[in-house]
């Protein structure tokens, strides 16, 4: 019962700011609304017993991506009058892409077997298991992702450097 109420609270916290993201004319408002969407998603992860993913969600999305996004918006335009194209345009291609995404989601969602979270056994933390799996079964993808990030960091440092220092 409490879990159901909590689920709807977090679902609302995810979806209502997401509507603001879509419909807001102000880019900054849209970016800050994402903050609440990310928090709602983290809450949903907690309800699903995925504590590690929930905290990682807050860390990566709010602490990293959101800050980067807002920085990007603030630094690329004059902060007071953001005049980025926000009107409706290119309706036909957008409709096709969105319909394709929706179709894919429906094909996956409709036949899916849903499990009640009330019936699931309580798990006492997932960090240990995730850590073990990352260091044994999935060591190669884990290391490849690490190298990818390293390359990205080096590329960013290279771009940010003054040319004369090269």
């Amino acid at each position: 019962m409490e879990l159901t109420i909590l689920f709807y609270v977090f679902a609302a916290l995810t979806l209502l700011p997401a509507l603001v993201v879509v419909f807001s004319r102000s880019l900054i408002h849209a970016a800050f609304s994402l903050l609440f969407t990310f928090m709602g998603v983290a809450g949903l992860y907690v309800l699903l017993n995925a504590d590690f993913i929930a905290v990682a969600q807050i860390m990566v999305y709010i602490g990293g991506i959101l800050i980067l996004l807002v920085f990007g918006v603030m630094l690329t335009r004059r902060p007071t009058d953001v005049d980025i194209q926000t009107s409706v345009m290119k309706t036909l291609p957008a409709t096709i892409v969105v319909a394709a995404v929706l179709g894919t989601l429906l094909v996956t969602l409709v036949p899916a077997q849903w499990i009640q979270i009330d019936d699931m056994p309580a798990i006492d933390g997932t960090a240990l298991e995730i850590g073990e799996l990352l260091m044994t079964t999935f060591i190669l993808p884990f290391e490849v992702a690490g190298i990818l990030l390293l390359v990205a960091v080096m590329g960013a440092a290279l771009i940010a450097r003054k040319p004369k220092e090269l």
């Binding site: 903050l35 905290v55 807050i58 860390m59 709010i62 602490g63 990293g64 959101l66 800050i67 807002v70």
Partner: peptide
């Protein structure tokens, strides 16, 4: 993780 919320608030 939660301390990063403060960053968003300051911004």
């Amino acid at each position: 993780a939660i301390s990063s919320l403060n960053v968003a608030a300051i911004m």
